[in-house]
Each structure stands twice: as structure tokens, then as C-alpha cells.
Nucleic acid binder design. Sequence first.
DNA 1: ACATTAATTGTGT
DNA 2: ACACAATTAATGT
Length: 213
Amino acid sequence: MLLTESIKANFPVFAEDDLLSEMEKYCVVKNLEVGKSLIDIGEEVVSVPLIMKGTVKVVREDADGNELLLYYLNQGDTCASLLTCCMNKTLSEVKVTVLEDVSVLMVPIRIMDEWMRKYTTWRNFVMLSYRERMEQLLVTIDSIAFKKMDERLLLYLQQRSSELNTNILCGTHQEIADDLHTSREVISRLLKQLERMGRINLSRNKIEIISLV
DNA sequence: ACATTAATTGTGT
DNA sequence: ACACAATTAATGT
């Protein structure tokens, strides 16, 4: 009842009553605070999170613990990588950590096979999540491979502001630098340039976007 | 309200 | 990349 309502509110695509009542029956809501981990690399994927509120960060990691940002997930999103792990019954390829307190709907893996067959809306949701994530990752990979840092930063700001649907991004220059694998100074200087061009406004822990085009 | 401290940001080399 | 200065926010008194 209450759960169904919040599912509807956050994932309007799930309109089928049967699917909704099964969700109500099998899924659980998890609330996690900043810094908590949803899943780590190598762990078994027992359920897939649908984000109802908050933000998480999905990363890969190399042997020495250097993190590679894959993508952020916000309200209405789910993790494409975990979906594949789920369907192939493989261990998690990614680490998912909470960036802003989240409330997630955990969909148990065992029920998903059935839903894929039974519910068109579920299947479509999964496929769409894949497609969108794949497209976004391709753009990101292109920018890593072919673009200079100034353009990569621009793309980063664009992606984050459109994901969150806001002109104001919170966080430090250091965090951006970590995401883009560069030094804080480089980011500070590039941001300063953008500010001088009148395209953003800077203040502590905050970037206000005026125009990125 | 003021002083102290810590964190973040700016800049020259 | 490093070193240091400047600025800002947080905290104690």
C-alpha cells in the first residue's frame, strides 16, 4: 500500500497492478546513509537496487585500489552492471557506495527471471536501463580517450547536472579530480577559467552552472 | 561577537 | 607536482 505508492511515484513505468503487488510482496526498502556500501566487487549479487531517493556512485577498482568512476545513479535509476551480474549469476563487477542518503528498493534476483518473462514493463525497464547506460558510457569513454581535460570536465558537469536536474552541483574540486583522475589543481584552474568566461559561478563546495554550451 | 582552527581553493614555480 | 597564500566555513570561548 504505502510501498506501492512510493514505487508508483518513483517508477511510473511500472503501471501493471500484478507487477506492483509482486513487488510489494518480494522487494524490501533499504535506507542507507552517506558512505555506506551497497555492494562491493566480488560479492554475490542477491538483489538489484532501484533508487527511490538519493545518489550512489558506481565504480570499478584496479589491483591497487584506484577507483574508476563508471556512473552515478539517481532517483529512478538502477544499476545496469548489477542487472547483468544478476542474469548471468556472476559476482559483482562493481562497487556501489552511497553519496547522498538513499532509499532503495531491493529486487531479489530469484524473482527477476520470472518477471522478465511475465511482465513487459519490467523487461522494457531493464532493456532501457541497459541502453541508456551503454550510450552514456560510450560518450564517457570517448571523452576519456579523445578529449582534453577541459572538455572532459565540461562533459562531467553536463552529465551530473542533467542527471540531478539541477544547476547547482555540490562537492569539492578534489572529488571531481578523483572522478576524472587528475589533480585538484587542474580542476581548480579549469573551473576558474569557466568562471571567468561567465559559464559557471564558484563558491565553496558549490558550482552553479550558468551555461555549458 | 570574536578568535582559533580546519578545510577548501588559488596561484606561481 | 609541489609549496604556499588566501579565503571560507565550522567551532569554541
